[in-house]
Nucleic acid binder design. Structure first.
Lengths: 96, 96
DNA sequence: CGCCAATACTTCCAAAATGAAAGCGCCTAG
DNA sequence: CTAGGCGCTTTCATTTTGGAAGTATTGGCG
């Protein structure tokens, strides 16, 4: 399996990179992620479980019965890839 | 919609980036892509249609009833993002 | 303590995407 | 004019995605 295929196995699922992008701005709570991203709560739960299992993020307990989700080092390392995709998408409007 | 979401709209579908990665090595024919990537022929056809429609690749007629698929400039510009993802996936084995 | 609201999920079901297999049309070599 | 390679399309089962509603835990408040 190529490196690219391995990467997509972890963050290739729908919403996965968008969740990571949001967490690049700092830890977020479940409800905030759901409202900001606009995905179904079941899918958010599934993605968070998968991303936690693959070491991209971790649960950070807060007071009350709330917790936040934060990126691990491995998750933070996705910043470059995300920026590259953003730059690619932004490189279209002006010249075309 | 964020830039990242826009990028994923185009290359976020399953197999899309893997097809582009393969084409970074040069134009490929339908059958070669299918055998090398190991995806179903219907999905390859669908992805190629979508990627052509979004200006990532184009059909290059060859003799016989064969054609090749090649990246446009926009498709070639994905190289950086793909490399970033590959680097991310490769940055795990040694230290962890 | 009993009730209420907030938060974090889980469950259920329909719709859409994915995957494997088989079929179709075109072309060209024999 | 038949046979085989090539580029798809079609069909159908399985998986994934999406939306809505339900459950569980916690803490605040009277």
């Amino acid at each position: 399996m190529s490196d690219l295929a391995a990467a997509l196995d972890v963050v290739g699922a729908r919403w996965a990179l968008l969740i990571v992008e949001r967490l690049l701005e700092g830890p977020q709570r479940y409800g905030d992620l759901q409202r900001d991203l606009g995905l179904g709560t079941n899918q958010l739960a599934t993605r968070l479980r998968e991303l936690e299992a693959s070491g991209v993020l971790y649960r950070l307990p807060l007071r009350h019965n709330t917790r936040a989700y934060a990126l691990t080092e491995r998750g933070l390392a996705l910043r470059e890839a995300i920026r590259a995709l953003e730059r690619w998408a932004a490189d279209e409007g002006p010249a075309t």
